[in-house]
């Protein structure tokens, strides 16, 4: 159950309580971004540090492997790119200006 943004005071749960678990899912933070991470397939060793360090839920993983980036949630913080060990010194994630990507 989500609360419509224009709901009146009579129609919302008391005291700002959130009665629906996991509803952070509905809050998209992708619009906060200036830079976005871009994945370079050949440099990825699937260590999944990016997935571990991502403060939101923007790194998608499937079957234990890097699957992609969910830009709806990526705030562009750059932590994934910073933590990425890459392959022989070549990072698998790099930050590029959002508008140029």
């Amino acid at each position: 159950m989500s609360v419509p943004k224009d709901a009146g005071w009579k129609d919302v749960p008391k005291a700002g309580r959130i009665l629906e678990p996991g509803c952070a899912d509905k809050y998209e933070t992708g619009g906060w971004r200036t830079y976005r991470p871009v994945h370079i397939e050949e440099n990825c060793i699937n260590c999944l540090f990016c997935w571990i360090y991502c403060p939101d839920q923007a790194i998608l993983v499937e079957d234990g492997k890097f699957k992609g980036i969910d830009y709806a949630y990526c705030k562009g913080c750059g932590i994934c790119a910073k933590e990425c060990p890459g392959k022989r010194g070549n990072k698998a994630l790099k930050m590029v200006l959002d508008e140029e990507a």
């Binding site: 005071w9 005291a15 700002g16």
Partner: peptide
Amino acid sequence: DWNFEHKRQQAE
């Protein structure tokens, strides 16, 4: 965005 509504509830 919401605090006012919750305070209004409290007043009620």
